[in-house]
Design a protein around this nucleic acid. Sequence first.
DNA 1: TCCTACGATGGACACAATCCAAGTCAATAC
DNA 2: GTATTGACTTGGATTGTGTCCATCGTAGGA
Lengths: 140, 140
Amino acid sequence: MSDLLERLRARGWRMTAQRRVVAEVLAGEHVHLAADEVLERASALLPEISRTTVYNTLGELVALGEVTEVSTIGRAKLYDPNAHRPHHHLVCTDCGTIRDVHPDGDLPAGLPESERFGFTVHAVEVTFRGRCADCRALSG
Amino acid sequence: MSDLLERLRARGWRMTAQRRVVAEVLAGEHVHLAADEVLERASALLPEISRTTVYNTLGELVALGEVTEVSTIGRAKLYDPNAHRPHHHLVCTDCGTIRDVHPDGDLPAGLPESERFGFTVHAVEVTFRGRCADCRALSG
DNA sequence: TCCTACGATGGACACAATCCAAGTCAATAC
DNA sequence: GTATTGACTTGGATTGTGTCCATCGTAGGA
């Protein structure tokens, strides 16, 4: 993830301890953290970091395309640092657990002209909803 | 939409003025309302209706499969009454406008076993993100 | 018409996210 | 190394969305 720090510096980011910590927290695969969880983990590394700074930094990372926001139903937004590898999401409708999935080549085709309503489409997002093994075991 | 009222009554719903009004507000195609907007419009028809009742009724409609919740990024959940016709969504990343789209037959295939991680998948959701004509006209 | 269980009410509460004014500090210039 | 400055950070207040709960009202059956 230190290549991320390099890329950020190259884009003129002022490097601060807070931003470094937020980037550090978001390292890895299959990471999907709510802003609150990022704050919690960042606080463990840098106790004085403020919530506003975490939100600001996450927003900037999203604007730079380094991190993707994952929309959820009725929960806090999740931040997915795996933005450079296209993938879909598999979400448990009970507990909210998210897994990245990489279906082989069945990305939906672009929209036909007749269905675009004048939009310029620049991203497609596929979410599979279901129940994870744990939740099925708990409640049938 | 009065067939909706029929279906609800058939399922043992106690029919009240409040529930009727909420169902009425959700009539039509290409309707995607936040709970707050439902409350606003319902209040116009029945001024004393309470927020809790609107939320309760929406939740019940979702549980019955008559209405679908649409996840958004950074906004309130939207309620989509068009639940009986499978469709995808085209979302403007600037203003949040949503259109229903019906791509011809390019639904993503189910997940291969190896990518299910023990989940039981029961729904696939496809969201196209882009910018609508209005927003492009405004800011290039 | 009366009963009663289900539904509605609204104020308090919880959580997510943003705003703001004031203080701090990374990067640049000297 | 020091001074400078504007971008960054802070934390408390605020907004927005949604839920909880005790109490009241009423739809629909007897």
